[in-house]
Amino acid sequence: MPLNIVVLAKQVIDPEIPMSAFQVDRDNRRIVTPANIPPVVNGFDENAVEASLQIKDSQEASVTVLSMGTGFSMDAMKKPLAMGADELVLIRDDAFVNTVDSAVTTRMLVAALNKLGGFDLLIAGRQASDWDNAQVPLGIAELMGASCVTLGKKVEVGDGKVVVERIVPEGYEVVEAPLPAVVTVSNELGQPRYPTLRGIMAATRKQATVWSADDLGVSPSEMTPLLNLVDLFVPSTVKECDFIEGDNEEEAGRNLALKLREAKLI
């Protein structure tokens, strides 16, 4: 049996958009989707795709990418397929507009994972660049009784267990855990591979499986959020920068040192 890997990937607003394009609609408590700027797969989730493909490079494995959301862009969501993943499953429901609660997302994804027949290894990004919740994969591990390793920068599988180089404040530790396992990964995993032309062609031909909340048989009570979004706003930061100048850059550097001395900072 090939190793059954599922990767969680979320579609997000491109975090690299200029500040001027980032707008909050405070009345409706939502972030305005910027026009003409295509959405992307969350960066840490691309690291997760890369981690799964590194495993697939060295052993027999299937990689299914699972996502939940609304307003999917196929250009964005097919990128993991173009990189080399095998299947794409999208849970699409208008009820997920502006979902800020990880608990609902966790339950929906657990239902989808059960429908898919479970997993040997679930890999996900450490957090999404939109709501920065960093909760869903860990919740899935709890609800499905899988072992759990966070913040991986290298993921390998063998002998029924996963071996992860896990980032800790002092450096990293090597952790092993039995399958089925949930592993979150971070950008330290390295640059995700670029899709090849052949990969892009193959991805074009593949059809995503699309399910709604109804298809998953999730009861309305399980869709009740456990968090309320009360307010959403842009924090005000009014700081005046004192630009230190000089006849040339060297002098500006010297003047900066003198200024910091005068302010008793050094």
Partner: peptide, 9 residues
Amino acid sequence: NAMATVSCT
């Protein structure tokens, strides 16, 4: 870039 105020149900 934004700040959210949340409450728990």
